[in-house]
């Protein structure tokens, strides 16, 4: 073993190097279809959106041209956009909090070891299988003051004397929009938390029982901390999704009455496809995208913190 690298060894090294290069090339070729689609479907439109946001682009008006920050100035000076932002945050905050609360309750209910719980779980999860647009259409029919079931039964049971025009008043329209979202997405939260609950180990609970904890303190001091990462996951996913809500509100209220339930997404849609002011809509889209990415970053940080606490 005193001789220097023989020609054979050198050749071996060469082939191994070329094979690793080959491997990389193979990897890239496998990735390239997905990358191409991603480029065409997401990256390119985003870049184009950014480009358009600095231009005057009106589908009805005369010619297009570079206008600098004018679109952004218009976005920030429009009171409608500000009210849209407020509506969006209001919608997200109330829906997500309700979904987490109800979802936790539902998960605790379904976590009991009864034979009926499997059937119940299946029933509770049904809303997840309904397309948002479909559930919005059904809600609209249910809430109709003339022939909807909701007003009919409320009157029948003597809770109200005159039918309520749910979608005709700002407050009740909000109730309807949030109720729809909560109805549709609470099972999703419950499902995540149920998975979390089934993973809470028995021993710390038993240790806490022996340490003197009753059911409430057991939940508060042991179960809830173990659930924290799952609550964080549900919170992050629901928050991101809630910001993106469009179809259900579009169908249920179309942002009305007036613009009371007009969240940013509907606002962008109206500017772009009703006013045909694509430049301003692009600018608003870019601003919303930036805000959303900042929020997402914060949410992911929360998620990271809550998961490493439980790591052993």
């Amino acid at each position: 073993m005193t001789t220097a690298a023989s020609p054979l060894e050198a050749e071996e090294r060469l082939t191994s190097r070329s094979s690793s290069k080959e491997q990389a090339r193979f990897g890239w070729s496998m990735l390239s279809p997905a990358m191409t689609i991603l480029l065409i479907m997401s990256v390119a439109p985003a870049i184009y959106l950014f480009y358009v946001s600095f231009r005057h682009e009106n589908l009805l008006g005369p010619g297009s041209g570079f206008v600098g920050l004018q679109n952004y100035i218009r976005v920030f000076s429009s009171p409608e956009n500000w009210s849209g932002a407020v509506a969006t945050f209001q919608f997200v905050a109330i829906s997500v909090v309700l979904e987490l609360g109800l979802g936790l309750g539902l998960a605790l209910l379904l976590n009991r070891k009864f034979p009926e719980t499997n059937l119940l779980a299946a029933l509770f999860i049904l809303p997840l299988g309904v397309a948002p647009v479909v559930s919005a259409l059904v809600f609209r029919v249910l809430l109709d003051p003339a022939y909807g079931w909701v007003d009919y039964y409320l009157q029948l049971w003597g809770i109200i004397s005159d039918p309520i025009d749910w979608l005709g008043q700002p407050f009740t329209a909000w109730v309807a929009v949030i109720a729809l979202d909560v109805w549709q997405w609470t099972p999703f939260v419950a499902l995540i938390l149920l998975a979390g609950l089934s993973g809470v180990p028995a021993e710390p609970k038993e240790a806490a029982m022996i340490d003197g904890a009753g059911p409430i303190r057991l939940f508060w001091h042991i179960t809830l901390p173990f659930l924290r990462p799952f609550i964080a996951i549900a919170f992050v996913l629901r928050t991101i999704e809630a910001f993106k809500t469009f179809g259900s509100i579009f169908v249920l209220t179309n942002g009305g009455p007036g613009s009371s339930t007009e969240v940013i997404n509907l606002d962008i849609y109206r500017i772009a496809l009703q006013n045909f002011d694509v430049g301003a809509a692009s600018a608003l889209g870019i601003v919303f995208l930036l805000i959303l990415s900042l929020i997402t970053k914060q949410l992911l940080a929360i998620l990271g913190r809550s998961t490493d606490i439980m790591e052993e």
Binding site: E203, A207, M209, I210
Partner: peptide, 20 residues
């Protein structure tokens, strides 16, 4: 009596510590 009223302490096989 429930566990919490018995005034006993227990050491478990896998320690059963509260990880948080």
């Amino acid at each position: 009596l429930p566990a919490k009223s018995r005034d006993i302490a227990m050491v478990f096989q896998n320690y059963a510590l509260y990880p948080h």
